[in-house]
Design a protein around this nucleic acid. Structure first.
Lengths: 343, 343
DNA sequence: TCTTAGCACTCAATCAAATGGAGTGCTAAG
DNA sequence: CTTAGCACTCCATTTGATTGAGTGCTAAGA
């Protein structure tokens, strides 16, 4: 595939992204500034079509890029200029607009992505490789239920209600909490759990009742912690409704249901967690039919060098990749930094 | 307006709700079982149209109900049979499917509504008339920030990060927390606040530093508490995308944006809080253009006789009111009961 | 061998006219 | 008050014609 063909492909895609209409040979010949006749361009197009980079919606329409065409485009034809510092600074301002805990930050990031790209933004919740217990508290409720308040990773609060076999008094619970806090504050929560279980087995015989209670309660708490499935925050779904190429309500519905179902999208995002930079799924590349007309631009975000999540933008395949890619990239860095600074 | 006209209107609306197509005089004459000729029916229709209960999309189409027509229909023509105990029991099961705190209950309810009606479900967060402080805890973070954990109303946990003027040590914070817990546990949070402020003014001169700290921290906490704006949980938006009458993408987009904006919808829901039972907004009645093609069926829910929120269903004006109304009604009762039992 | 002009051809989109059918309004008679 | 009859309206669908953009192919030129 020669230089000229690549150039023409680039011009075609550029124009198609801007105008949204199939590009014919005459237009392309003019746009390319190559001083070629439409006929020659047609020959080139014919080749490109054979190679699968462009396609014609019908016999007498111009050509539009295929997913494969876009792929070549972003991989080798596209030069993306990184955002200048001013823009990055603006992004940072917006992201840090409010005094924010991590979950609010995630939401901000998602909104930010959708707002500035005018497409849908998505950010996975950060996964914690090691969950350090900072503090645990119990409050008795009625009917053998206990409200457990868990502070983890310095500043994240989780609470849940657990059901126990017997009634614990307030003072009992306080004792248990004190014990756990004294012995395990700062330690990894899974380590705590296994440690407790081990301890239980070793000292089974002479275990006092308190210890037993600690274990049984802690078990409950930490087990349920496990079930904390991964998840993401989506913003700007409605932005997707203004694109001509996504104007079929039924298709749109299926797309939105996929967003609600979350599983497929999560699966895709998971794949991006190991890419060390911006990664794209263009059209059918995703492997999910609902996303056939969409592209997903993602970047992992990390704290202290460790990747803890992925964020990205979802829009029609016909999107301004050169603009979107640096935005996603920068947002990922900023989010990582923000999560870090708030430690 | 005579008996016969009412009967015909009822039959027309019944049929229109089922079939979704304008009903002509011939069909209506047959359906009504009144042994009338189409011509007679036409005369009646003409009257009904003049009175504003039905309208013809165009000259040679049948008639469809107007908002006013639906209004008369639900107010005096419709007999809704309450759900039987079996169905109610099923509802209850689903609502209580999991060990749930109140926010999860709200979500369940919303999902439940959208699932069984196949439309959109909406539930406002319960507002707390009096917010009783059960427990307050502080954890120091870096940079003069403090993590505040607030347990209110026996079992709801809120946390926020506040910024203070000076650094508080862990032990200082503990002292403050102890003070607050000892003096104010169980009291209304607003009472606590005003009490603190009052105290501050009375003892301004000889106030010790601790007391000052307590007040300044508490002020921050309780002030921000104020900003806890009302909100709702929406489910099943996508269900709305399958209705023919809502198939215009642009309109749909506006509707969804209204859902995101929340303000207008909240305003509507607020109006329902004082109705003592199911309330409807049919089509234009809502006063919001985006809802022109929609109806909103709501019911307030209450705990211990006090209304604390509203739930409802949003769908096209052409909905099976006889089925929806009792569902909304029952769900409101069940949610109230569930919130109560979990006390 | 590559490029290009020329030409026939295809196909979507648009428009106009024709047709059918569902349903109405009106009128006059029962 | 009811109803049959009739003229009329309007939508929906089909059909055919027209247009224009763009293609593929071929043969001639560089």
């Amino acid at each position: 595939m020669n230089e000229r063909a690549q150039h023409l492909l680039r011009v075609l895609i550029d124009r198609y992204i801007r105008e949204g209409e199939p590009v014919g040979s005459r237009t392309l010949a003019r746009d390319s500034r190559l001083d070629l006749s439409p006929a020659t361009v047609r020959n080139v197009m014919s080749d490109l079509e054979e190679m699968g980079f462009v396609a014609a919606p019908h016999t007498s329409a111009g050509r539009i890029p295929t997913a494969q065409g876009y792929r070549l485009f972003v991989d080798s034809l596209l030069q993306i200029q990184p955002l200048d510092t001013l823009q990055v600074e603006q992004l940072r301002q917006e992201l840090l607009a409010e005094e924010a805990d991590s979950s609010r930050l995630i939401e901000s990031a998602s909104n930010l992505l959708s707002d500035i790209t005018r497409m849908a933004g998505v950010v996975t919740l950060p996964r914690h490789e090691h969950v350090a217990l900072r503090r645990i508290d119990f409050l008795p409720l009625s009917q053998n239920r206990i409200l457990v308040i868990l502070v983890i990773n310095e500043k994240e609060v989780q609470n849940r209600i657990i059901q126990t076999d017997r009634t614990f008094s307030a003072s009992e619970l306080e004792t248990i909490a004190n014990f756990l806090n004294a012995h395990f504050a700062g330690r990894d929560i899974h380590a705590v759990r296994s440690h407790l279980i081990e301890e239980m087995q070793q000292t089974r015989q002479d275990m006092n009742e308190l210890m037993l209670s600690v274990v049984s309660v802690a078990e409950k708490v930490f087990t349920e912690e496990e079930g904390d499935d991964e998840d993401y925050v989506l913003a700007g779904q409605t932005n997707l409704m203004q694109f001509r190429e996504l104007s079929d309500v039924e298709k749109l519905r299926e797309l939105f249901e996929a967003f609600n179902r979350k599983r497929d999208i999560l699966h895709l995002l998971d794949q991006c967690i190991c890419a060390n930079g911006v990664q794209l799924f263009i059209g059918e590349e995703s492997g999910y039919q609902v996303l056939d007309e969409c592209s997903l631009v993602t970047a992992p975000y990390s704290v202290e060098g460790e990747v803890i999540g992925v964020l990205g933008v979802i829009g029609p395949t016909r999107m301004a990749y050169d603009r979107i890619i640096p935005i996603v990239d920068a947002t990922a860095r900023l989010l990582g930094a923000a999560l870090n600074s708030k430690n």
